[in-house]
Design a protein around this nucleic acid. Sequence first.
DNA 1: CACATCTTTCAATTTTTTTTGAAAACAAAA
DNA 2: TTTTGTTTTCAAAAAAAATTGAAAGATGTG
Lengths: 166, 166
Amino acid sequence: MDVKEAKEKFIESWGKMASEWGINRSMAQVHALLLVSPEPLTADQVMQELDIARGNANMNLRALVDWGLVHKQLRNGERKEYFFAEKDMWTVVRQIIINRKKRELDPMLRVLDEMAGVEEKCPDSEHFCSVVRDIRTFSHKASLTLDSLVKADANWFTRTFLNMVR
Amino acid sequence: MDVKEAKEKFIESWGKMASEWGINRSMAQVHALLLVSPEPLTADQVMQELDIARGNANMNLRALVDWGLVHKQLRNGERKEYFFAEKDMWTVVRQIIINRKKRELDPMLRVLDEMAGVEEKCPDSEHFCSVVRDIRTFSHKASLTLDSLVKADANWFTRTFLNMVR
DNA sequence: CACATCTTTCAATTTTTTTTGAAAACAAAA
DNA sequence: TTTTGTTTTCAAAAAAAATTGAAAGATGTG
C-alpha cells in the first residue's frame, strides 16, 4: 500500500466510522484530511480534495474549530484562512472527551437530577427510584472521572491507564 | 413531579439522548421502558406503551437482548415471551462498553493496523506515519484499558475510578 | 393436519439528517 | 466608494436511517 492510497483509505475509514460515533461523515473526513496533511489547507482545498460543497466544508471546519480539533492560521498578505489539525493525540482525545461528555453525559445527568425529585410512595415508585438512583450514582462517578481525566496531563493519563491494565 | 410523569420523562429523555449516542430512539425507549418496569413485559405491551409498530418493537427487543441489556423470560403454560431489563448498573455499563467498543474502537484499530504497512519514504509519508503511529498507540492503550475494565468486577471498577478522582 | 398464537421479515413509507449551491454578508484593497 | 476575494447562511434537494404494517414463518395444541 502506498502513501496516497493509505491516506485515502484513512480518510474514508475515519468517515465511515464517524457515523457509528454519532458524528457526521463530512466532519470526520475533513478532520482526517487535515490530520494527514503536513501543511495547513484552505477551505477551497478541502472542498476540492474531498469533493464536497463549500457550505459543507465551511460548516464542518467551523465545527472542528469549535471542538478544538482544528486551528486557524492567518498568513499576512493573504486573505484566506488556513486550517490545520491539532496533532497532539492527548489533546485530541481530551477535546473529544470534553465534547462528547457535554453532548452525551451531561444532558443525562440533568434529567436524572430532575428525576430525583420524585417521592417514594407506592411500590412502583420505589422500584423506579432505585433504578434512577443507581444510574445517577454511576453517571456522577463517571462524570467526575472524566473531569479529572480532562484536567490531567498526558503523562498522568498514560500512567494511570497503564496501572489499570497492570 | 409524580411517578407516571417522571417515568414518561425518563423514557422520553433516554430516547432523545440516544441519537447523540448513535443509538436509535426506539431502542433507547424500549430499554428505558423495561428499566423502569417492575415486571417483565411482552412485545405487545411494549408496542402499546410506546406506540410503536410490531416490527420495530421486535427488532429493538432483539437488539437489546443481543447487547445483553435485556433478558427473555419464558413462563410455562404461556407462549409469549416476556422481556425485562438488566438492572445491575455495572453489568449494564459493561455491556455498553463491550458493544460500543466493538462498533467504534475495534474497526478503527483494524484500519490503523493496515496503515502500519505503509513504508516511510518521502517526507509526506513520514508525517503520515507519525500521525497514524500516534493514533494507533493511543487506541491500543484505550483498547487494553477497556478490556480490563470489562473483565473487572464492580468493586474493582469503583475503587479504581475513585482512585483516579482522588 | 388445521388452527391459534406469537415472532420475524422486509419492501414501502416516513422521518431525520446531511449536503448542496446560490445568494448575502463581510472585509480588505483600489 | 466600488471592486474583489473570501466566508457565512439557509432554503431546497438528496441521502440515510428509522419505522410501519402486512405477510410469511414458527411453534405448540386440539
